[in-house]
Computed example of a mutant assay.
Amino acid sequence: MAAWEERGHQCEICYRTPAPGEIRLHLDHDHQTGRFRGFLCSRCNTGLGQLREDVAILHSAIEYLTRSFRQE
Rank of each mutant, 00 (worst) to 15 (best):
A19K: 09
D54L: 00
G38R: 05
A61P: 01
V55E: 10
W4S: 11
S60I: 00
Q71V: 12
G34F: 07
R67E: 09
A2R: 12
I62N: 04
G38W: 05
Q32R: 07
V55Y: 10
G34E: 08
I62T: 03
T33L: 06
P18M: 03
C44D: 08
I23H: 07
S68K: 06
C41M: 04
L58P: 01
A19M: 05
G47R: 02
L48V: 00
Q10H: 11
D30E: 08
Q71D: 14
D54F: 03
A3V: 10
N45Y: 09
Q10T: 11
G38V: 07
H26R: 13
L25K: 04
C41F: 09
R7K: 15
G34S: 07
E5D: 15
L58K: 00
Q10G: 09
E72V: 13
H59K: 12
N45I: 09
D30N: 15
W4T: 08
L65T: 07
C14S: 04
H9W: 08
P20C: 06
E6A: 14
E22Y: 03
R16M: 13
A19P: 00
R24V: 09
G21V: 07
A61I: 01
Q10Y: 04
Q10D: 02
R67C: 04
C14Q: 05
M1L: 14
F69M: 15
G34I: 09
A19R: 12
I62H: 04
R16V: 11
A56Q: 10
R52H: 15
R24G: 15
R35W: 00
Q50V: 13
R37A: 08
R70I: 02
Y64W: 15
A3I: 10
P18A: 07
G49D: 04
A56N: 14
G8P: 11
A19I: 00
H9P: 01
R7F: 15
L25M: 11
F39Q: 00
A61K: 12
L65H: 10
T46V: 13
R7E: 14
R67W: 02
E12Q: 15
I62W: 01
E12D: 08
D30K: 00
G47V: 04
Q71P: 00
